[in-house]
Amino acid sequence: MTETITNAVAVREQGPGAMVEHYKDDLAQVMPSHVKPDTFVRLAVGVLRRDRNLAQAAQNNPAALMGALMDAAQLGLTPGTEQFYLVPRKTKGRLEVQGIRGYQGEIELIYRAGAVSSVIVEVVRQADTFRYSPGRDERPVHEIDWDVEDRGALRLVYAYAVMKDGATSKVVVLNRAQVGKARAMSQGSDSPYSPWQKHEEAMWMKTAAHRLTKWVPTSAEYMREQIRAQAEVAAEQHVAPPVAPQQVIDEQGAEDDGPIEAEFVEDDTAGWPAAAQAGSGARA
């Protein structure tokens, strides 16, 4: 036990980048097969080295950092990008790492299910022309004057998918008030480090893309169907059914109408590597 704690403290003292590299194998165990652990870790370490505030947040609470990276790894999304943001968040007076799925991450999960040929997510600004009548129009008509110097403030955001059979999914259209409600439900959205402050347009798009996942298959749903089918075959053959991957379990409730940043890291450090737990004792 003493040796384990000593090793954990030693890894932590080397900095958050060293800790991420140290636990590459733990991250690799939960990644989908298409993700390369070396690339994932290199990108995560790179974003920590580029952002001093993020590095300090990771040093303050390694458990929160590892929780965010585990979430990204399970989803097969790239950390530190618009697929999966890593941002510092002030909690009880100190910075800690928060993982937030971005709009490109939402779109990636839709594509990965294999049911759609394209996903369209766009914002509408004041100078744009936008027409869409549900029940009459199959898809929105969005006209942009690309010569105008300033298209104006954000007004609407919409998202839909074209299925592989050519059909159009439900069209999601949200106005400023609806996006504002989603933002208000997102913990830490008023923080200067939040992507709502730094990447407002991208977060509008994330809001619409997240709502679209209610109407089109996502990779999590696809995996659940595969597991269900395998279980039925196993039952017929009288063999043990497959165990659901952790990713499927974790995404069970991800497509509700709740907070758009519902992928927040919890404080429970049970089950995390010893190095991550060693740095979490100061958190109440």
Rank of each mutant, 00 (worst) to 15 (best):
L69Y: 12
L154Q: 12
A115D: 15
G166H: 08
D190R: 15
F130W: 15
Y103W: 15
D145L: 04
H238R: 07
P134N: 10
P245H: 05
Q226D: 07
V216Y: 00
A177W: 13
G152E: 07
L77K: 01
R139S: 02
A270V: 06
G80D: 02
M31A: 08
V9P: 00
Q187Y: 07
Q252K: 07
A18F: 12
T269E: 13
E82T: 12
A270C: 01
Y158E: 04
R101N: 07
P242M: 11
L48S: 08
S33K: 15
K92A: 14
D71C: 02
R211E: 05
S194C: 10
A177N: 13
Y160W: 09
A244C: 03
P134C: 05
H199C: 04
Q104G: 04
K164M: 13
L69K: 09
A209H: 13
A235F: 11
P32K: 01
A8D: 04
Y85C: 01
K36H: 06
E149Q: 08
A64K: 03
V47S: 11
D257S: 10
S189P: 03
V116Y: 00
A276F: 00
T78D: 07
W204I: 14
E225Q: 12
E236C: 08
K206Q: 05
S186D: 15
D256S: 09
M70S: 00
V87H: 05
E106T: 08
L86A: 03
D71A: 07
A182S: 13
R12W: 06
Y111P: 04
G17Y: 02
A44D: 14
T4N: 09
A73H: 14
D256Y: 10
D165Y: 09
P242E: 05
P241T: 04
G114F: 04
A113S: 11
Q246F: 00
